[in-house]
């Protein structure tokens, strides 16, 4: 019961402070895993991202359902997702009422200019955490070559500009196939 309460609290906090798309919740989840190691490990978190990216729905909501389920079963999954949305609902309804004032306020505009690069740095730090999990061999203290090479190839493919953007699901599927073929 204490875990359920803490989970809702952590997700209310995440909903209040994570700004932007679903991956913006990632730094908060890394922190959650560090603070409550019995909820989920960083490896599980990486799996959650993969599943959340390749199933319908916003990544942030998929991840909150997943984290909640892992921590406290079905009820945990539902309440974590609802907790994540409560701050949004309250804030957006207030903003919708004040919309014109909000649009022109220079303080808000300037604070957003500082926030966007910070959010970029925060997401990069989450990427770095997952990167370490993939390429760092903590038994031999070395960098694993094959996973590193695959990450570089996948990244280049994400930047390639064919006629149509490659869907993230195709990367996930290709990753799974590589994993089985190369026994990663």
């Amino acid at each position: 019961m204490r875990d359920l309460f803490l989970l809702c609290f952590e997700y209310l906090k995440t909903g209040l402070f994570a700004i932007g798309g679903g991956l913006a919740t990632l730094p908060f989840l890394v922190q959650m895993s560090n603070n409550y190691p019995h909820w989920f490990t960083l490896e599980q978190l990486a799996d959650m991202i993969a599943i959340s990216e390749s199933t319908p729905g916003a990544i942030g909501i998929n991840m909150s359902t997943y984290v909640g389920y892992n921590t406290y079963g079905i009820l945990g999954g539902i309440l974590a997702s609802i907790s994540l949305t409560i701050p949004s609902i309250v804030i957006i309804i207030i903003i919708a009422k004040l919309m014109n004032k909000f649009n022109d306020n220079p303080y808000i505009q300037n604070s957003l200019k500082g926030l966007r690069p910070a959010v970029t740095g925060l997401i990069a730090s989450a990427g770095f955490t997952v990167l370490k999990l993939c390429v760092y061999d903590n038994i031999n203290n070395t960098i694993k070559i094959l996973p590193s090479a695959l990450i570089v190839i996948f990244f280049i493919l994400t930047q390639a500009k064919p006629t149509k953007k490659i869907h993230p699901i195709l990367f996930i599927i290709a990753g799974a196939i590589c994993g089985i073929v190369f026994k990663l």
Partner: peptide, 14 residues
């Protein structure tokens, strides 16, 4: 499969 998927996710995040 999940080890491979993690690699794809890393590339997508970056």
């Amino acid at each position: 499969a999940f080890a491979g998927v993690r690699i794809a996710v890393t590339a997508l995040i970056f």
